[in-house]
Every structure is written in structure tokens, then in C-alpha cells.
């Protein structure tokens, strides 16, 4: 595997202007990297900044501060015109395939669109390529003549994935790609994404709030809370030894679809605070059962914890006081 990561973010910050003088602190200094052929799962609740990060690394949004390195090249301040040519190499799949596709184009034209923009292929070649892509995402060729309104949610998401892989991108950002799909359909899409990752070696950023899905598809996981990374590490370590109290609470709130699995419940009180008035110190302190005065003083740094490449941002770990009692 090549040593250079496909995507690196360094202290990525994204703020939005809200009404008046208010500022929404959506992303507050997030650093991570994804290697070729790796799937990074990004989990967080609404308001954690995960979708904003997905859009910012593709430069659909411009970062307020920090750097985005795509294949070693800093694209954080690249002008929009040059971003456009870059998009052949970085693609996105959205949550809601019903609104992501032009309702007036047939599936064939939808899949051909990125080829028209980026490939320079002739008509016959494009036609062959569209058929090959449809076959690759297991979309029957008869369905290519249909309009989005005539396709099911799973079929539409296959069209979206075919579009995303059409230009053979190095990076694919998937923002909740299976959340709107029925269980059996979701399973098929996850299978497909897994195969594509192995075949194409593309790096994937998989954004989801569903821990069960992330466990299946991710090599590593980044846990976000209020625009900051609270924990990151290999999928197994995150599930088996969550260190940050928020990750522990998130894991225990997950309901496995198996009644024989006993739940160890640490039900959190309250909800994620508003990103408009960020509390000083640890963003999770207002809901954390282990918070002490010092947690509210300064933002805890993301520090290594025992295990391979496993990091967490909680000052109570060093004290050995980071386990939420059952």
C-alpha cells in the first residue's frame, strides 16, 4: 500500500454565520487521514459536524481554517474553478437518492453525466461504460431506460453509486448512504460498497449515525461531538474498548437487533448543546456523568490511549476515571 494517505485534514475549522452576530461553530479543529483502500467511519449525532466535514473535504464548502491535503496537495484554498476538475477524483453519495438525482433524466443519462464532464470518451465508449457501470452496481440494463420516479430507493442509490465511481475517483464521501433504505436493501448496498472498495482501492469516508452499519463497513472510526473528534481508532478497539465517556454512552445506547444481547445502559441526560454558544472546555462536559470542574476549563487534547493508533480526548483517562459506571 502506498505510504501517502489519500486525504489528510489538519485542524479543519468550519464556522457559519448565523443571524445577527452569531456564529455556528460547526467544525472546530478536526484532524484525520484516510489511506487508499481504507474506509473511515465517521459517527456523531446531529449537530456534531459530520456532514459539514464531508462537504468541506470535497471543497463543496470552503474551510474557515486548517488544511485539507488530497493526495499530498493542499486544496484548502484552491479556487472553485480548479476544484471542479478535481472532483473527477473525489465523489460523494448522499443520503437521499430521491433528491440527489435530476428527475427528468433517465438512469442511463444520469450515469453518463459524470463521463460527459470528466472523461473525454466518445459516444460509443460512454455507452459501453454506462452499461458496464450499471452491471457493476447490479442495476439491470432494462432499468437504465427508467426515470428516477420509476425506480425504488435501493435502485436509485445504485444509480448514485454508479455515478460516483464512473470517473474512478480516489476518494468517495458517503453521507448516510443507507439511512433511508429498508433493511434488506441496505444490506445489498453495503455489500456493493465493500466490493467496490476492494476492487477500486478508493478511500472512503463513510458518515453515519448508525453504529451497526459502521461496524460492518469501517476499518477505522472517528467519533465526533460538537464539531470535535472525541475518539478515533480501529473499529474493533472503538467497539470493544471505548475510552471516551461519550463513546461509551453512544455504544450503550445502540440497540443490537438481538434480544439475547444484554444492554449495559448509561442513558445520557439532555441533548447535544447548540454549536452557536460553544461551552468552554470539553463540549461533552454538560452531559458527562464524570465531568469535573477542570473539564470545563480547557478543551482536552486528543491523546494516545493504550492500543494501536487509538486516541481519545478526555482528561479523565490519565486519571483512570473515564469509565461510566454501569
Amino acid at each position: 500500500m502506498s505510504s501517502q494517505p489519500t486525504l489528510v485534514t489538519e485542524n479543519l475549522v468550519k464556522h457559519f454565520r448565523a443571524g445577527g452576530n452569531a456564529t455556528v461553530h460547526a467544525v472546530n479543529g478536526v484532524s484525520f487521514s484516510i489511506s487508499p483502500g481504507e474506509t473511515l467511519g465517521m459517527v456523531g449525532e446531529s449537530g456534531s459536524g459530520k456532514s459539514t466535514i464531508g462537504r468541506t473535504v470535497l471543497r463543496l464548502l470552503s474551510p474557515t481554517a486548517g488544511r485539507i491535503l488530497f493526495q499530498g496537495r493542499d486544496i484548502s484554498t484552491l479556487p472553485e474553478r480548479q476544484c471542479r476538475s478535481l472532483r473527477a477524483e473525489m465523489q460523494m453519495v448522499f443520503q437521499d437518492p430521491w433528491s440527489a438525482l435530476n428527475p427528468r433524466l433517465r438512469a442511463r443519462a444520469l450515469i453518463e453525466e459524470p463521463l460527459l464532464l470528466h472523461s473525454g470518451l466518445g459516444r460509443a465508449e460512454r455507452r459501453d461504460k454506462v452499461e458496464a457501470l450499471a452491471a457493476r452496481v447490479r442495476l439491470g440494463s432494462a432499468l437504465l431506460e427508467r426515470f428516477p420516479s420509476e425506480l425504488s430507493g435501493g435502485q436509485l442509490q445504485r444509480v448514485c453509486i454508479a455515478r460516483a465511481i464512473a470517473t474512478e475517483p480516489k476518494l468517495i464521501v458517503l453521507d448516510e448512504p443507507t439511512s433511508s433504505l429498508d433493511l434488506s436493501v441496505r444490506a445489498g448496498i453495503l455489500e456493493l460498497l465493500h466490493e467496490l472498495k476492494q476492487e477500486t482501492g478508493a478511500a472512503m469516508l463513510f458518515i453515519s449515525h448508525d453504529l451497526g452499519t459502521l461496524r460492518l463497513i469501517s476499518d477505522r472510526i472517528v467519533v465526533l461531538y460538537l464539531g470535535s473528534v472525541v475518539e478515533s481508532g480501529p473499529t474493533r478497539a472503538i467497539f470493544e474498548r471505548p475510552e471516551h465517556p461519550y463513546t461509551q454512552a453512544l455504544m450503550s445506547a445502540h440497540l443490537p437487533a438481538d434480544p439475547t444481547v444484554a444492554l449495559s445502559r448509561h442513558v445520557l441526560k439532555g441533548e447535544i448543546p447548540s454549536p452557536i454558544n460553544l461551552p468552554p472546555g470539553c463540549g461533552f462536559a454538560s452531559r458527562c456523568p464524570l465531568a469535573i470542574e477542570r473539564c470545563r476549563a480547557a478543551m482536552p487534547p486528543l491523546a494516545p490511549v493504550p492500543g494501536d493508533n487509538h486516541h481519545a480526548a478526555c482528561i479523565r483517562i490519565a486519571e483512570g476515571a473515564n469509565r461510566i459506571p454501569a
Partner: peptide, 15 residues
């Protein structure tokens, strides 16, 4: 097809 039971990599027919 629940995430707990799903084994990725085993081909299956789609719904």
C-alpha cells in the same frame, strides 16, 4: 440483514 447478523463479503440476492 440486520447489521449484527450480516456477513459482508458473502454474496446475496438483493431484495
Amino acid at each position: 440483514s440486520t447489521p449484527e447478523r450480516l456477513v459482508i463479503g458473502r454474496t446475496r440476492t438483493t431484495g
